[in-house]
C-alpha cells in the first residue's frame, strides 16, 4: 500500500515556487501518482522523474523537449529556498552542510551549489543552483512476507541482519517497513514488538521533520535523527536500552566498529549496504571485517527482476544456507 498521491501533492507543492506549482497543476498528466523527483536547475529545463524515466514540462504543463521546457530563473530558486527553509535559512545550517532539507511528510529536497570550505571542511553551500525534490514513498507491508526470516523465535530476539542492493534498489523502503513490523510486532506471525531504536543519519528511514518521524517506523520506535551512525548507535545503546538498533547504509570502518560494539552488548543490528553480492562487500574493508567475523545471520538481496525492491534472495551468510530464492 503506497502513501496517497493527493496528500503527497499537498505536502510537496506547498514548497514549490508558485510558477512551478502552476505548471504542475496545469499538466493533464497524472503526475503525482508515481512522481519520484522534481528537479529545478538554474536556467535549465524543468525535469521530472517518474518510474518510467525523466521528462520535461513546458510553461503550459505539457511534456516538452529540453529546448522548449520551462527554465527556472534565479527568482524561482530563491523562492524555493525560502519556502523549503521556512524563511529561516539560519535554522537549516546542518542540513545545508549535508546537502538536503527534509520536508513534512518525509520528502527531501537535495541541494546543489557552490561549496564553502573552512580548513578543507565543507561548512555550507552557497549560490544554490539545483533543487531535487525527492518524493518519499512508503510501501506499507512490503516486508511482511519476509519478516519471519529475521526473527529468532526460540530466543525471542531479532537476528543481526543486512539488506543489500545496488543504489536505488529499494533498501530504505524495505528497511523502513521492516523496522515498523519489528517495532509493532505481528501477532499472527507469533511475535510481539521489540524495543527498536533507529539512527537515521540522513533522515531517510523515518523522514523526520524537526525531529518528528513522518513515515511509519513503528508506534514505539525511538528515532535519533540526523546523527552520525557510529556515534548515534553508541548513544542509543547507552540511553534507550534498545533490543534492536536499525541504521542505513553502513560502510565505513567507524560504522562497523560501532556495529561490533552494539552486537557485543547483546543488541541486534539491522542495517543496509550498497552492493550486488557478498563478494562485492568483501572488497570494502569495514564490511569485510563484519563478514569475516560472521556477525550477520541473515542477508537479504533486493533486485529489480520484478520491479524495484524485489526480494531476490535471503541467506544465512555464515553457512550459505538459502531460505528464499536461488
Amino acid at each position: 500500500m503506497e502513501s496517497g498521491s493527493a496528500s503527497t501533492r499537498e505536502q510537496v507543492s506547498h514548497f514549490l515556487p508558485k510558477v512551478i506549482r502552476d505548471i504542475l497543476d496545469r499538466s493533464s498528466l497524472p503526475l503525482w501518482e508515481d512522481l519520484e523527483e522534481i528537479r529545478l536547475r538554474l536556467g535549465r529545463p524543468l525535469a521530472l522523474h517518474r518510474r518510467e524515466g525523466d521528462f520535461y514540462l513546458n510553461e503550459r504543463g505539457e511534456p516538452a523537449l529540453p529546448g522548449q521546457a520551462y527554465r527556472p530563473g534565479r527568482q524561482d530558486l530563491d523562492r524555493a529556498l525560502e519556502l523549503i527553509s521556512d524563511s529561516s535559512l539560519y535554522a537549516f545550517e546542518q542540513e545545508l552542510r549535508c546537502g538536503y532539507i527534509t520536508l513534512p511528510g518525509g520528502h527531501r529536497v537535495g541541494l546543489c551549489g557552490q561549496a564553502v570550505l573552512e580548513a578543507g571542511r565543507l561548512i555550507r553551500l552557497k549560490h544554490i543552483t539545483g533543487f531535487n525534490y525527492r518524493i518519499a514513498r512508503e510501501i506499507i507491508g512490503t516486508a511482511l512476507p519476509y519478516v519471519r526470516y529475521f526473527i529468532d523465535y526460540r530466543q525471542a530476539r531479532v537476528k543481526h541482519s543486512l539488506i543489500l542492493s545496488l543504489p536505488r534498489g529499494g533498501k530504505t523502503t524495505f528497511l523502513r517497513d521492516l523496522t515498523r513490523l519489528l517495532g509493532d510486532g505481528v501477532p499472527e506471525l507469533g511475535f510481539r514488538g521489540f524495543k527498536v531504536a533507529v539512527v537515521d543519519e540522513r533522515s531517510e528511514i523515518a523522514g523526520s521533520f524537526q525531529g518528528m518521524p513522518q513515515l511509519q517506523v513503528g508506534s514505539c520506535t525511538d528515532v535519533l535523527d540526523a546523527c552520525p551512525k557510529a556515534e548515534g548507535m553508541m548513544m542509543l545503546l547507552r540511553s534507550m536500552g534498545p533490543q534492536v538498533i536499525v541504521t542505513d547504509e553502513i560502510g565505513s570502518v567507524e560504522d562497523t566498529k560501532a556495529v561490533e560494539e552494539v552486537i557485543h552488548a547483546g543488541v541486534a543490528v539491522v542495517t543496509t549496504a550498497h552492493g550486488g553480492s557478498l563478494a562485492e562487500l568483501r572488497g570494502r574493508p569495514g564490511l569485510r571485517r563484519l563478514l569475516e567475523q560472521r556477525i550477520f545471520e541473515r542477508v537479504l538481496f533486493l533486485g529489480r527482476s520484478r520491479g524495484v525492491g524485489t526480494v531476490e534472495q535471503i541467506i544465512d551468510p555464515r553457512d550459505g544456507k538459502v531460505f528464499l530464492g536461488k
Partner: peptide
C-alpha cells in the same frame, strides 16, 4: 536579510 543568511550572517 531575514531568513536568507546562515546563522552568523543573520546575527
Amino acid at each position: 536579510s531575514l531568513g536568507v543568511c546562515e546563522q552568523e550572517g543573520q546575527l
